[in-house]
């Protein structure tokens, strides 16, 4: 009885989440400028239009350009913060962790306005993709710290002590023991930061200069119905890509740590 209703609940739940996403590829092949049922016919024209759309390509390139640096820098900073919080005898750890988490709870709107004020008004910096990337790093850092700290707390500290005991220096211990054991969480952090940066809209809206990122471009193009189907085509490509990434990440995570079930995933 209960298990029946639970199963029903689970199916409804999954349908609610995935049905809209599955509509994306369906309409991207539909031979109709307007996104409505009934479906008319099969076409790949929107994909051709997408490929030919130069501003869209430029926006995609802009987004991809900042994703790498944002993911690497946030994860790098996150790793340092996690090591300091999880492995060193510094004081006020709870306070420091709290301060690191602030961007998670401050409305992005407020963050955007204040960063804009700071960069333009106070520092007089030219807005560009670099300022967007800086904003994204600020936003990604808490995610990175949380993921990495969870992993660091998840494995026995005596592993590092054993390495020191067996003659390795602190740095060699980090390289040979801590880093490999952290690797699944590092990969997870890189992926999550990439995703956060890739579809972030508000900060990009406030902090971008002449170059639009992909979310900004899509938002701008919604005013023109003719551009919608090619946007659906783009969405389908991104969906396919993210499925591949998730599968790859899971594969790395399983391969990464034999025996330790406590690996932190996404």
């Amino acid at each position: 009885m209960t298990s029946r209703s639970l199963t029903t609940y689970a199916i409804v739940y999954l349908a609610f989440i995935y049905a809209p996403i599955l509509l994306l590829p369906v309409f991207s092949f539909n031979d109709n400028l307007f996104v409505t049922f009934p479906l008319k016919g099969f076409t790949t024209a929107w994909y051709g239009e997408m490929a030919a759309n130069a501003p869209m390509g430029k926006a995609l390139r802009s987004s991809l350009l900042i994703v790498g640096p944002v993911a690497l820098i946030s994860t790098g900073l996150g790793l340092m913060a996690a090591l300091a919080l999880g492995r060193s005898p510094i004081r006020f750890k709870a306070t420091i962790l709290g301060l690191l988490m602030v961007p998670l709870v401050v409305p992005t709107l407020v963050l955007g306005v204040s960063l804009l004020t700071l960069l333009r008004g106070v520092l007089g910096v030219q807005l560009s993709l670099a300022t967007v990337a800086a904003g994204h790093i600020l936003l990604c850092l808490p995610y990175s710290v949380v993921i990495l700290l969870a992993r660091l707390d998840g494995f026995d500290r005596s592993l590092e002590e054993a390495s020191l005991d067996l003659g390795q220096s602190a740095f060699a211990t980090f390289r040979r023991i801590t880093l490999p054991l952290m690797m699944p969480a590092i990969v997870a952090s890189l992926l999550l930061c990439s995703v956060v940066s890739f579809d972030e809209f508000l900060l990009a809206f406030f902090l971008s200069g002449a170059d639009a990122t992909l979310p900004l471009y899509i938002w701008g193009s919604l005013r023109f119905p003719a551009k919608l189907p090619s946007t659906l085509a783009l969405g389908t490509c991104l969906l396919l890509f993210s499925v591949c990434v998730v599968v790859l990440a899971e594969w790395i995570r399983r391969k990464g740590t034999p025996g330790s079930a406590a690996a932190t995933g996404l």
Binding site: F155, L181, P258
Partner: peptide, 20 residues
């Protein structure tokens, strides 16, 4: 002195074998 500078070695209660 640090552990790597001492003529001692330790067998930890949890064994602390490197899982990777």
């Amino acid at each position: 002195l640090r552990p790597n500078q001492r003529p001692t070695n330790t067998v930890f209660q949890s064994y602390a074998l490197f899982p990777h």
